[in-house]
Nucleic acid binder design. Structure first.
Lengths: 211, 211
DNA sequence: ACAGACGGAATGAACATTCATTCTACAAAA
DNA sequence: TTTTGTAGAATGAATGTTCATTCCGTCTGT
């Protein structure tokens, strides 16, 4: 093995990347088996590191998962906001945000399931409740979907429904479909996505006389 | 073996309720903490029985959970089908079925979350996939929602979308809302439920010219 | 007194976390 | 260039805990 000029090997030789492998393995396994269902030993195996190594990068299992959630959740929000134009019509902005959920879910299936699981765990529920009641956002960033709905209601464009119901009407079907897609139960082509998005809009838009 | 007084029910003879207590405790705990997150010891404590007693009624933890799922799932289907009238309009039948989901979820929050979790577990996913591909139903009973959609599509009443997408549009928001309701994030009154159901119909119904 | 139901301690397997040790990279010394 | 010293990274066997399941002495209705 030669020593000099070893700069062209960016893959395994670098010390950097081990942390990423651990994170990737954790996301993949927990998204499938859940927190309690995936032992550290399995994460270590999947990541190709020793079990002890994980504790060089993360204090404990909880911290590991929490950190991953924050990271994935931020990436998710960024996907939604990328290219978001506050000057577009309400409908177009709505479609943009909802399409973002599809996009993120299809491109990051493991992260998507991970986030979903986290939100449905006791910890995630507590988090949402606190956000709801205290409004003491740490990141400050709230889903712009809520503002959009409030704004649209004032203009008689969006149905008069509790915000939570509108959000359920918009997000519910998409989350449902993406999960089916990840499970391999359906193939999501562009046409299906577009029609589904249009249908979601039909659900939240104010009636204009159509029977 | 004694001859007289043939006991056809070997389990129910003893103080009735023990088995039910175990089931109830399991549903409650697993719906909150998940399968791997709820130890048998905790179930025993919550049910007010000894840990060993559980094994008098169920072979092991898996069997316990599987049996509960079947039971809850059947009760769920019954709720949906109760009062279902195949002679009503497609819209009314749709609303009936969807309202049933709300009803069951609100009246049986623990069971609802339990079923949801089960379907999203690896086991549940496998089950759904098998049902989809083999069509070898054990109970035979499929959600009538699918038939309804297929029928409605033929009559141009329902949007031309993959069945999975239609089901997502109908069920997704309701599941989403019920979970929020169970988490205490929203109060579901009759008005909200009705409006949400109407919105779900808007999502799946064929356009009639409204802009 | 007897048969079965019951509780909960006992058991062994699996788990999260720790720690003594080994490995690696690199720089100073020769 | 080669050797040696060293700090930090990495490891996986060891540790103490928790789990699912079993086992056995006790209790209850008959």
């Amino acid at each position: 093995m030669n020593i000099h000029s070893t700069k062209a090997t960016p893959i395994q030789v670098n010390p950097i990347g081990k942390r990423e492998h651990i994170i990737d393995a954790t996301i993949k396994l927990i998204s499938e088996y859940g927190f309690h269902g995936t032992p550290i030993s399995l994460i270590a195996q999947e990541a190709g590191v020793g079990a002890g190594t994980i504790y060089r990068y993360f204090k404990d299992k909880d911290t590991l998962v929490l950190e991953i959630f924050k990271q994935a959740n931020n990436a998710f929000k960024e996907t939604l906001l990328h290219g978001y134009d506050a000057n577009q019509t309400i409908r177009d902005r709505f479609l943009h945000l909802c399409r973002g959920i599809f996009q993120y879910g299809i491109q990051n299936p493991y992260e998507f399931k991970f986030i979903e699981q986290f939100y449905n765990s006791p910890y995630g529920t507590t988090l949402r409740r606190e956000k709801l009641f205290c409004n003491c956002g740490d990141t400050g960033q709230e889903l712009p979907l809520e503002q959009l709905f409030a704004f649209g209601q004032a203009q008689q464009i969006i149905k008069k429904l509790p915000l939570a119901a509108l959000i359920a009407l918009a997000i519910g079907p998409i989350v449902f479909l993406v999960k089916d897609s990840i499970a391999g139960l359906i193939q999501l082509d562009e046409t299906t996505i577009n029609s589904t998005l249009a249908a979601c809009w039909d659900a939240v838009k104010q009636d204009t006389g159509g029977r």
